[in-house]
Design a protein around this nucleic acid. Structure first.
Lengths: 335, 335
DNA sequence: ACAATTAATTGGAACGTTCCAAACGTTTAT
DNA sequence: ATAAACGTTTGGAACGTTCCAATTAATTGT
């Protein structure tokens, strides 16, 4: 990785000479100051592309003790929703005039710790973290105490004194379940997800709330946990059908779970969307494109990204607040 | 984004005082030099975590004119294979003792240009780029001339004087097609992808090569282009069946295309894997988990990542070579 | 025991930028 | 005409590290 020992770099001083001003003036132009005359600004800008100057952010960041780097620590980039979220965040951050540094913890808390330790060395301006399972509140809090603005997304770490932006999981599954109830279904299952995931409880209770309001007795048989991948969804569906072959609808923990469920429904000779209605959670792009198109709870990744950036913009020490992002029911062919 | 004006940072000098050595010695320890006594090293290391020192990479990078940042410019993070690749690259780069900075060009060449312009300001050590459509060879070459090590992945930019690491697309579709031929099928379609994508031609010619070798006359009707998403796959399959209802097998440009194809096959009342055999390209995780599990051409993302890092490690000016990553046939239930 | 060699340590300069306080030039008020 | 006010411009110091040449300590050879 020998970088060809970049000869002699072009600096603000070279630009200044070329433009016939001082390096301070060049700096002012570079930082977008309003207290520099248009004449000077134009001369500097011309000089910059005449001699091919490139700004050195290391020097700037060192001297100013600021940076425009925002770290995004994602739990699992291979998960389609995470990827969508990362892309949304990246775009939004760039719109703020900042630059994002995206890394993947792979749901591994040690990796996450090591990544963040490294990122601190780069003097990042803020951390956006989707916490890996097992993240301790102390860890987050110490990060905050060190002076870094931190926002958690998607998952809550109870005890962590940070702002957290996440979808309204409870409202989402409640909405999904009530949608099924409104269609006249009464035997409704809830499948996928498991207790180690912080949002599982919220989504499950949205379902039970809706069922309770409809005065339908809660049946434990109809709630089956699973891994959060496609296989998990298929297995959970199989388990439900084994004990309750007469269910009319299934509310899934996520779209991916729904994909698996649909596969098993088909395999068992029934038609998803006709014999058994299915609804997911997330609204992945595939859900719209697949057939039958999946009904689901839409969680707008861009909206989350916008909220995160707003929080970041007005962060104060110890602002521990929870920002719920609204969700929407999307009715498609599957239920 | 007011970062709480981090009071007064702890520097190497503080560490030096605490450890009773000079700052130069501390620096040697930090950079992992072998010409420092064990005694000194231990004192320094102890002092470091006693006073909670954090390394300032901006200063290091400024002074040494080196950095351990590797930029990964991905064309489309929402694409599952890209995400997989990004994750593999990230892990591999970290294993080299470097740190990756992942950004997403979103298949937009202007975004790509702007991202790279910014990344240069961070003094990155190298660029790994999956070029967006429309990337000009001149652009890449000028990046190289500026002294940056550059590797292209997945897509070739003809005329660009850089190393390119990509799967053996030709061998892949040839393998897939010959697999179908070996099963006795003769009416085999090739669907998905389109000419604006550089690897389309390679994959298409793998198919035609196999067909020609088997002495089956090429039929234009059996080759249908499409967008590279699920919908595209479904549409292409529909188009094929409309003009050639008797096909026995279909070789798909990618797994995602295959997903769409399978949906249409089902919708038309046939059974994928029984009435029409289907094979994909990429081997996404879902392909293994779905039902019927998708036969496909496996392209090992980690292997690509390893090759990229090897190239990066021995890069010389103007090494324009092409590194083909071997592919494997994975036979599953779909064909 | 002493010179010659090697190993380990060190202070000052340098990297390219921003900050600061002072200087300059122009306009406005008296 | 002069003072005050304002808007621009400016040189030197500083940010925290690494590099370099020089110094000191330890080891080897005779």
């Amino acid at each position: 990785m020998k970088s060809g020992t970049k000869s002699k770099s072009v600096t603000v001083i070279d630009v200044a000479k070329k433009a016939g001003v001082s390096k301070s003036t060049v700096s002012l132009v570079l930082t977008g100051s309003d207290k520099v005359s248009d004449k000077a600004r134009q001369k500097v800008e011309k000089a910059i592309d005449d001699i091919g100057y490139v700004y050195n952010r290391d020097a700037a960041s060192l001297r100013s003790r600021r940076s425009n780097l925002v770290a995004i620590v994602i739990n699992d980039l291979k998960n389609p929703y995470s990827a969508q979220l990362a892309v949304g965040l990246e775009k939004q951050i760039r719109q703020m005039g900042m630059f994002s540094m995206l890394v993947n913890s792979d749901e591994n808390v040690e990796t996450q710790t090591s990544l963040v330790r490294n990122l601190k060395e780069y003097n990042v301006a803020a951390f956006i973290i989707c916490p890996a399972p097992g993240t301790s509140p102390e860890w987050t809090n110490s990060l905050v105490e060190q002076g870094f603005p931190v926002v958690h997304i998607m998952r809550e770490v109870s005890g962590a004194k940070v702002a957290t932006v996440l979808p309204d999981n409870f409202a989402g599954t409640k909405l999904a379940t009530q949608h099924m109830l409104a269609k006249g279904y009464k035997r409704i299952a809830f499948i996928g997800g498991n207790e180690s995931i912080s949002d599982y409880h919220q989504r499950l209770s949205g379902y039970t709330e809706a069922m309770t309001l409809a005065e339908i007795p809660f049946s434990k048989k109809l709630c089956v946990q699973s891994n959060t991948n496609r296989n998990g969804g298929r297995g959970a569906m199989e388990e439900v059908l084994a004990t309750a072959n007469d269910i009319e609808a299934v509310v899934c923990f996520s779209d991916v779970i729904a994909y698996g469920a649909i596969e098993h429904i088909r395999a068992s000779g029934k038609q998803p969307g006709k014999d058994i209605a299915v609804i997911g959670f997330d609204d992945l792009e595939d859900s719209r494109l697949m057939s039958p198109a999946l009904s689901t709870i839409h969680v707008d990744a861009n909206q989350i990204a916008i909220a995160v950036c707003q929080v970041l913009a007005n962060i104060k020490d110890g602002t521990k607040n929870k920002i719920l992002i609204g969700v929407d029911l999307i009715e498609r062919d599957s239920g």
